[in-house]
């Protein structure tokens, strides 16, 4: 771990070489908006573009996505210049035209001084109208959970996650990791009593033997038991009562 010093908005900041600008900045109290960043996901696709900052190194200045830009010695970062604000505003306006129904994007738009998108607005009932096509959900499903139940389907404007053949997935374990990871709440997951509905399937939940709260799908328990060899009785109680 090589320690280096960089500058953020004129202040000297200690950092570890190759950490992302976004993480260093946030650790030191500088706010940068970010949608498609997830600490557990190694592939930083950099797809949402809202985390833009200005960086200078060796006399050159440019705009980069902070979530996947590694810090190096002597780097100077500015998070809040006119240029950053102007370009980010454009990015958010485009996101708003794709996802007019997403409260998260609507809020971000207001924060960036946008009332309404000037562009064609993608309207309709499809859940894609909240999805910014960042792929976090499919990456979490593949890289963190390890089941690959969903993938990004189609391309361009229609790109959005889905299950194979648009049918209920046979391998989904109902864990909901995709829904939790989604920055714009685009994935519908409904917990009703002892049943969880997600991706067109219904999962029976295991209830905690102490508090009686349904807290984990049976299928997820099966998966954890199978892949880690953990004892099934471990899941009799929810995390609060173990």
């Amino acid at each position: 771990m090589e320690k280096i010093t960089i500058k953020i908005n004129g202040k000297d900041i200690e950092a570890v070489k190759d950490q992302s600008v976004l993480e260093v900045a946030r650790e030191n109290g500088f706010a940068i908006p970010a949608l498609c960043f997830h600490p557990e996901i190694e592939t930083r696709a950099g797809s949402c573009r809202v985390c833009l900052v200005e960086v200078s190194q060796n006399g050159r200045t440019r705009l980069v996505t902070s979530c996947n830009y590694p810090v190096r010695k002597g780097l100077e970062v500015r998070t809040d210049t006119d240029l950053v604000r102007r370009i980010r505003k454009g990015v958010v306006e485009l996101l708003l035209s794709r996802t007019p129904d997403s409260p998260v994007i609507q809020k971000l738009a207001r924060e960036n001084g946008i009332e309404k998108s000037r562009f064609f607005v993608d309207e309709g009932e499809h859940y894609r109208n909240r999805c910014i096509a960042c792929s976090l959900c499919t990456q979490v499903c593949e890289e963190v959970v390890g089941v690959s139940a969903i993938s990004m389907l189609d391309r361009g404007r229609d790109k959005a996650p889905g299950t194979p053949y648009l049918k209920p997935s046979q391998v989904c374990i109902g864990c909901g990791a995709c829904a939790y990871a989604c920055p714009t709440d685009a994935i519908s997951m409904i917990d009703e009593g002892e049943v969880r509905k997600i991706w067109g399937r219904e999962f029976k939940m295991v209830t905690c033997s102490v508090c009686g709260k349904p807290y984990i799908p049976e299928a997820q328990v099966d998966w954890i038991v199978k892949t880690t060899g953990k004892d099934r009785s471990f899941f009799d109680k929810c995390p609060d009562h173990r």
Binding site: T138, C141, E142, S148, A149, I150, S151, M152, L153, D154, R155, G162, T163, P164, Y165, S169, Q170, V171
Partner: peptide
């Protein structure tokens, strides 16, 4: 065909989700 994608998944050991993703792309 769907049957084809299923079979490819079994034989190549690639998740069906990926194959369907490519198929729609």
């Amino acid at each position: 065909p769907e049957e084809g994608m299923k079979r490819v998944s079994e034989v190549l050991g690639v998740p069906e989700s990926k194959i369907y993703g490519v198929g729609t792309f």
